[in-house]
Write a protein that binds this DNA or RNA. Structure first.
Lengths: 133, 133
DNA sequence: CTAGGTGCAAATCCTTTGCAAGATG
DNA sequence: CATCTTGCAAAGGATTTGCACCTAG
């Protein structure tokens, strides 16, 4: 239950936090800007301040409940963190985001870092693609 | 010579454009924010407006003379585009940026896109690393 | 000359912050 | 009740834009 995750993050269980976490959980695999959430939640009669949304998302990110990505260079998007690592490809025509995971890719990245004398801590990767005809 | 590259980009050969392009060319492999350039060029007695720097960098990016990256989520950095594709790893302790190219990685990315029914158009990838002890 | 470029300051966009009022544990 | 949260509006930082003046072709 969301309640516990919030508590375990050391945060008080408030309505905004519950609503945001449940919304993202219910929409696993989808990516929302803060503004998207603001709008979507208003539609669901959950009227939160935009500032609150930003604050809560950042707290959730710190707590590892949520992941933040920068697919377009202006607005960040958020998605629930299920713990299963994955990368993204973005269809540049439709804007659609596809999640994927590739074992070899992960291994290769570690190998590359290693060859340069580094340990891989994290990575960011987005493939920009077009539908094949 | 920079003059021709600018001309071929369909832009007038002006002092600001020449200075920026030559500075970046002279510092191949280094990455600068617009503000960095503003400061560095002022030191070299090349006093350009910040707005001009932004404008010129964007024009150069469009023309393929320069590449823009987003290593940190707030400020974009620019480097000269030598035509040789490469990716980056960032040492999260020192902030140092290392460029690398890995054939297998490139192939693997295409393969992954392909398996999902897409053609790979572009990609963005940054490895965040720490020096090995 | 004329189209395009520059610099400045103001505007814009996304995100963060200060603060008074309102919940939570 | 003490502390943490919220919402609003104002502030902030990076980047863009309007406009009068300037410069390349």
């Amino acid at each position: 239950m969301s309640k516990n995750e919030i508590k375990e993050a050391g945060l008080k269980v408030t309505l905004p936090r519950l609503q945001i976490l449940e919304f993202l959980t219910a929409n696993k695999g989808k990516h929302y800007t803060a503004e998207d959430l603001f709008t979507e939640m208003k539609l669901a009669d959950q009227d939160l301040g935009l500032a609150t949304i930003y604050r809560v998302l950042n707290q959730f990110e710190t707590a590892g409940l949520v992941m933040k990505h920068q697919f377009e260079e202006n607005q960040a998007v958020f998605e629930i963190d299920t713990g299963e690592h994955h990368d993204h490809m973005v269809d540049i025509d439709s804007g659609k985001v596809v999640e994927f995971y590739d074992e070899n890719l992960e291994k290769l990245q570690e190998k590359i870092a290693d060859e340069h004398g580094y340990d891989l801590i994290d990575h960011k990767m987005v493939l920009y693609v077009k539908k094949k005809k």
